[in-house]
Structure formats: structure tokens, C-alpha cells
């Protein structure tokens, strides 16, 4: 019974993946991609990887979906590019893509069947950090440098998006201004939901210590709340030249990096935490990251500053 469920899930994922790359309209393709993400989320749940499932639903399907919808909308307004790549080039691309897919499949199948060392180490060393969630132990302690670099990548992505701003708009508020809608369902929703969203984001961060959850998933929900308020026209994004905004964006990576470097003095190695206070330190760093990642993700969706006129 469950095997059939899994087979059905796998077939749905493959079908949706095909639909996402085979349709010609960017909007249809994005819709297929979002549903594909939700099917993948259920697949991760079936595999017992609840942390990955949460991330897939929040980041893979939700946030990436929002980014792609924005891109599709822009592309539809742009003049269509009629030049199709030549047949040999397309054949070459198909072969290259298939090669990557087959190569990845071969690598996955060639993995040794023994329990990976990392999982054992992460599960048995839970006492070292005071966290019971092995995934969070890996992210925040054992492979902390990877997580810091991940945040730096987000930061670099935002710099990339901002660098698309025309000169005349630089320093202004990013994205377009959504007019404050007349009192309606969206305004009501954007007033009622954010307190709940903030609570859920904090909850995900807090339970992430011992159960599936964490700063990144919480940050995505927080970013969604920011975008909702903006979409309803209740608030506008601050100008990109705002010092407070920039400090907010670097707060998380800076705190993580600072704590990591302090580890050299306090615990004898970079990104090592003094054992007695490990959990408290990790939670503080995670909270700083929650705020910064939420702001960065929201700004990525909002886009570069492009308003020629200064906002009143």
C-alpha cells in the first residue's frame, strides 16, 4: 500500500518536472514548479527528512516560486526573443543536461550503504551543544563554516540584484510601490496574519533546537509576512541607501562570523563554542540570522530599486 503511494509520488514528481521544463509559457512552467516542490515536500516527509521537507516547502516551493513568478511577469512584459537556438545547439544542450542528470543518479546509486559518519557523529554528539536536533547540530556547530558561507551567498545574491538598478534609481526604495488598496480582504489579511506569522517563525526557530525547524525556515515565513504587508500597500520597503536596512542585512552573517572567530580565543578553534554556553550562543546567532535572512529574502523578491521619481 505505502509502496504504491511512493511510486505514485515519484511518478507525479517526474510528470510535474517534465511539465515544468516542457511548457513554453514561463507562468505555466512556474506553476508546475511550485506544485513539483509540494510533491517533493511529501517525498521528503516519506523519507523521514522533516527538516529538508520544511525547507523544500518554504524555500524551494514558496520563496523560489515567488521569485520565478516575478521573473515570469517581467519576461512577459519584455519584447519576445524570437531567435531560437539552432538544432545542433539544442541537441548538445539536451545531451549535456541528460549527462548531468545521469551522472548525479550514478553518484547517488554509488554511495556506500553504510551509515554516513556525519550522521553518527551528529547524533552521538548532541550533548556537546545541548541541541537534540542532529540537523541543527550539523548546521550550527559541526559544519558552521558552511552555514556562514551560505548566508554570504544570500548576501552576494542581494548585491547582484541591487546592482541591476539604473543609476537614476540607485539609493531609492526598491521594487514598485503597491498602492494602498481600499479596505478589502487583502488589507484585512495583511493586518491579521503577520502577528501569527511572526509567532510561527519564532516557534520554528525555537523548536529547531530539538526538533525539525530552524532559522532558515522561520526566516522564510517572516519574509512572506513582509512581502504580504508590502503587497497590500500597507508599508513600503525602506530605501536601499538606508543604514538601518543595511545593518539589518549584515547583522546575521556578522554575528555568526564574530562568534565563530571568538571561538579561537574562547574554545580553542574557529567556530567552536564554549561547551557550557553552546546552546545559548547558538540560539542568539540563530535569532540574528532569522532577522537578516528574512530581510534579505524579502528584498530579493522585491527586486532592485528602479523608480525614477523619489517616493514622496
Amino acid at each position: 500500500m505505502t509502496a504504491w503511494f511512493d511510486v505514485g509520488l515519484a511518478l507525479m514528481a517526474l510528470g510535474l518536472a517534465w511539465r515544468a521544463i516542457a511548457t513554453r509559457r514561463a507562468f505555466d512552467s512556474t506553476v508546475a514548479f511550485v506544485i513539483y516542490g509540494l510533491v517533493l515536500t511529501i517525498a521528503w516527509v516519506r523519507l523521514g527528512a522533516y527538516d529538508v521537507a520544511l525547507t523544500e516547502a518554504a524555500v524551494g516551493s514558496g520563496l523560489t516560486g515567488a521569485l520565478l513568478l516575478g521573473a515570469a511577469h517581467r519576461l512577459e512584459r519584455a519584447p519576445a526573443d524570437e531567435d531560437r537556438p539552432s538544432a545542433p545547439l539544442r541537441a548538445l544542450l539536451a545531451v549535456a543536461c541528460a549527462g548531468v542528470a545521469l551522472g548525479l543518479g550514478a553518484v547517488v546509486l554509488a554511495l556506500p550503504q553504510v551509515e554516513p559518519l556525519q550522521a553518527v557523529a551528529a547524533a552521538s554528539a548532541a550533548e556537546a551543544t545541548g541541541l537534540l536536533n542532529p540537523v541543527n547540530n550539523v548546521l550550527m556547530a559541526f559544519r558552521a563554516i558552511d552555514t556562514v558561507l551560505e548566508k554570504m551567498v544570500l548576501f552576494a545574491a542581494l548585491v547582484g540584484v541591487w546592482s541591476l538598478a539604473p543609476d537614476a534609481a540607485w539609493g531609492r526604495r526598491p521594487g514598485r510601490r503597491f498602492p494602498p488598496a481600499a479596505e478589502g480582504p487583502l488589507t484585512l489579511f495583511a493586518r491579521v496574519l503577520p502577528p501569527v506569522g511572526v509567532l510561527i517563525a519564532a516557534h520554528l526557530l525555537w523548536v529547531g533546537a530539538d526538533a525539525p525547524g530552524g532559522a532558515f525556515q522561520g526566516a522564510t515565513i517572516l519574509a512572506a509576512m513582509i512581502l504580504l504587508v508590502r503587497l497590500a500597500g500597507l508599508a513600503d520597503a525602506p530605501p536601499v541607501s538606508s543604514r538601518a536596512l543595511r545593518l539589518l542585512i549584515v547583522l546575521g552573517p556578522a554575528a555568526f562570523l564574530g562568534v565563530g572567530m571568538a571561538g579561537v580565543v574562547l574554545a580553542g578553534a574557529p567556530f567552536a563554542y564554549p561547551a557550557a554556553h553552546a546552546k545559548a550562543i547558538i540560539l542568539v546567532v540563530e535569532f540574528a540570522m532569522l532577522v537578516s535572512v528574512a530581510a534579505t529574502l524579502a528584498l530579493l523578491v522585491v527586486g532592485p530599486p528602479e523608480r525614477a521619481q523619489a517616493a514622496p
Partner: peptide, 20 residues
């Protein structure tokens, strides 16, 4: 129950928006 309430709220809002 909270999940249900959130789904209701978002479903009702999105329904109104699409209808609009």
C-alpha cells in the same frame, strides 16, 4: 486547528482576490 484556520484565512482571501 491553527493549520486549519490559516488555510481557511488564506483560502478565503485568495478566493476573494481571484474573484475580484
Amino acid at each position: 486547528a491553527l493549520v486549519w484556520l490559516l488555510l481557511q484565512a488564506s483560502g478565503a482571501t485568495v478566493g476573494q482576490l481571484i474573484a475580484e
